[in-house]
Design a protein around this nucleic acid. Structure first.
Lengths: 188, 188
DNA sequence: TCGTTCTATGCAACTGGTTGCATAGCAAGT
DNA sequence: ACTTGCTATGCAACCAGTTGCATAGAACGA
C-alpha cells in the first residue's frame, strides 16, 4: 500500500495534520498520488496505532484545533524497508483510451468535446507545473544550490511536466485523427 | 466502472471467452487497462446476468470447453451511453515517484538498481509496441487503407508509444540525477 | 507414470479506495 | 439573524480489485 509510504514521505518533508495532508495531495504529492481526506484520516489513525506516527494536539486561534502528525522511528524504518524492496512497474489505466477504441462502435465525432475538455485540463496542469518549476527551481528568485531532497523533488516534477507535455501532444494527435475520420464521414 | 466498458469494447472487436479476454488484457487492451482473470470472470458473470452479454457454450477438441461471450443489444446501448458521458481526466498513481522523493531520507544511490529495472521494462514495452505498429500499421505488410476502427486503434497505440518513450527519457533523467547526487556524496 | 504446462473456470477472504453523510468552530458578508 | 465558506475530523456502506486457493481436461516430455 503506497498511500502509507506517500504519507510517510510527505510527513518527513513536513509534519502536518490530516487536513493539511489532504491539501498536499491536491498539490505537490498529488501530482503522482491521489487520496481523499477520508482515506487519509483512516490511514493516519491506523499508522498512529501501529506506532509509525506520533500525534500532537495543536490548539489554534481563529480556527479549530488540529492533530499534527509526525513520523516516529518505526515509521522511518518502515519507509526505508519499502525503499529497498522492488516494486512492479505500473501499468496504465486510461479510461479515455477505452472510449477512443469504443468510438469505433458509435459516432467518433461525438468524442470531440470530451477530448477537447481533457486537452484543456492537461494544458492547465502543464502550465501549473511549469509555473511551479519556475518559482522553485529555474526562475530568478528560485533556491540557490539544491540539496539532495530538492534535486529529487525537481526530477519528479520534471516527470510530471514530461507526462503532461506528452499527453497534450497525444490529445492533439487524437483530435486530428477524429477530425480526419469526421471529414471522411458524410454524417458530419 | 470502466472494466465493464473495456470488456464491451473488446468483445465488440471480437467475441471470446473469459480466458481469451484475460489474455487480451495482457496484450492490446491491457496497454491501457489491466485486469486479472478472476476479476474478468466475475464481471462477465454479472454482465451476463444483467443482460449486457450473450453466452454460448463452445465444445472444443484437444482442450476444455469454453463459454464464448458476445455483446447483446443492451450492452451496446450501455456502451453508447457511457461514451456520451464525460469522464474525469485521470490522475497518476506513480509509486516510483514516491520512492524517488522518499530517497531523500535514505540513500539515493540505493535506488539505482530499481530505476534501471524500470527502465528496462519500459524500453521493452516500447520495443514491443513499435513492433506491433510496424506489423499492423506502418510496415510493408501492414493493412491497406484503414477503417475508422483501425485508425482509432492506431491512435491509441501511438499514445502507448508516446507514453513509453516519455517514461524511458524521464528515467534517463532520473538516473543522471541519482548519479550526480551519488558523485557528490562521499558515501559512494 | 509422473511432473509440468497450457487451456479454462471459479470461490472466499481480504484490502484499498470511493461516496454519502454528519458534525463543529470560526470568519465574513448580506 | 442567516447564509456561505473555510478549517478540521470522522463514520458507515459500498464497490472494485487483489491474493490465495481449488478444480479439471488435455498435451508433452522425462
Amino acid at each position: 500500500m503506497a498511500l502509507e509510504h506517500a504519507i510517510l514521505v510527505s510527513l518527513l518533508e513536513q509534519p502536518g495534520s490530516g487536513y493539511e495532508l489532504a491539501r498536499r495531495f491536491e498539490r505537490s504529492i498529488g501530482y503522482f498520488w491521489t487520496a481523499t481526506h477520508q482515506q487519509i484520516y483512516r490511514v493516519l489513525k491506523r499508522m498512529e496505532s501501529d506506532g509509525l506516527l506520533d500525534v500532537r494536539d495543536v490548539p489554534q486561534e481563529r480556527r479549530p484545533d488540529k492533530k499534527e502528525y509526525s513520523v516516529a522511528g518505526p515509521g522511518r524504518t518502515a519507509l526505508s524497508g519499502w525503499l529497498h524492496e522492488p516494486i512492479e512497474p505500473e501499468s496504465l489505466r486510461h479510461d479515455l483510451a477505452v472510449k477512443i477504441r469504443g468510438a469505433a462502435f458509435d459516432d467518433p465525432a461525438a468524442l470531440l468535446d470530451e477530448v477537447e475538455r481533457h486537452h484543456r485540463v492537461h494544458s492547465d496542469r502543464l502550465a501549473h507545473y511549469l509555473a511551479g518549476e519556475l518559482r522553485d527551481f529555474t526562475g530568478p528568485g528560485a533556491l540557490g544550490p539544491l540539496d539532495a531532497g530538492q534535486e529529487l523533488q525537481h526530477v519528479v516534477l520534471r516527470g510530471g511536466i514530461a507526462y503532461e507535455r506528452m499527453t497534450v501532444a497525444w490529445l492533439d494527435d487524437v483530435l486530428t485523427t477524429l477530425h480526419r475520420l469526421g471529414a471522411a464521414d458524410p454524417r458530419i
